[in-house]
Amino acid sequence: MIEQPKNSYNMNSQELEKLKYPIGQHHEHVKYTMEDVASWIADIAQFPQQITSLTENLTAEELNWLHRPDGWTIKQLVHHCADSHMNSFMRFKLALTEDTPKIKPYHEDRWTELPDSTMDDISNSLMIISGLHRRWAVLLNSLSEDQLHRTYYHPEHRTETNLGLTTSMYSWHCKHHLAHIEQALAHKGTF
């Protein structure tokens, strides 16, 4: 029997995949109900309190714990959520005020390396998340079923995406990164 080479973390690909996607990958809901949308909006509305509870009292050492091998630190995850959700909020507003606007993709991996994303002080990003999600929840709760079908064009993926499916994606995104922070804390940043 030939032994498969192991990675430097002594984990198999399934274990690494579980660390990368602790709640599983996002699956688009081709059909969804307004009840589904209400549940997704609740996830988005609750996110600031959840991420703040997990992170506000962490030490600088803990904020530098990785969520998985070769992954981001807890502080980078917090800063990333502020960046990502600001971009998504703007995409919602563009889709609601323009006909299928072409959005601007960005290199999230590069953004996490910028000085404002590597600071140990996460308080400003937590404030951004808190204020942004309050406004986002107001906007989302005001949308009609017709408005949820408004779209934007993503040039990187070459697809039109409607706001209902985007709401689903960001509900998942919130839970995805909360799970990353929880696993970083559970593993104390070591794998």
Rank of each mutant, 00 (worst) to 15 (best):
L63P: 03
K75C: 09
I23P: 09
H26K: 02
Q14A: 15
I44E: 02
N12F: 07
T55Q: 03
P101W: 00
T100F: 00
D109H: 07
M34I: 07
N87T: 10
I44A: 05
A38K: 15
I74Y: 06
T59M: 12
L94Q: 15
V30K: 15
K75T: 11
L16D: 12
A38Y: 05
Q50D: 01
D43V: 03
T33F: 00
M34N: 01
S13C: 06
R91F: 01
H26T: 00
E98L: 09
W65I: 06
G71Q: 03
H26L: 06
D70M: 09
M34V: 06
W72S: 01
P101E: 05
I103S: 01
D36I: 03
M90S: 12
M90G: 13
L77G: 01
S13K: 15
E62I: 11
F89V: 03
H29K: 15
K75V: 11
L16V: 11
H26G: 00
E62P: 09
E62T: 14
Y32S: 08
V30N: 13
P101L: 00
G24P: 03
H67R: 04
P105K: 12
L94S: 12
E28G: 00
H79S: 05
D36Q: 08
R68C: 10
H27E: 09
A45D: 11
L16I: 14
H85A: 02
P105R: 13
L58C: 13
W65K: 05
R68G: 13
S13G: 11
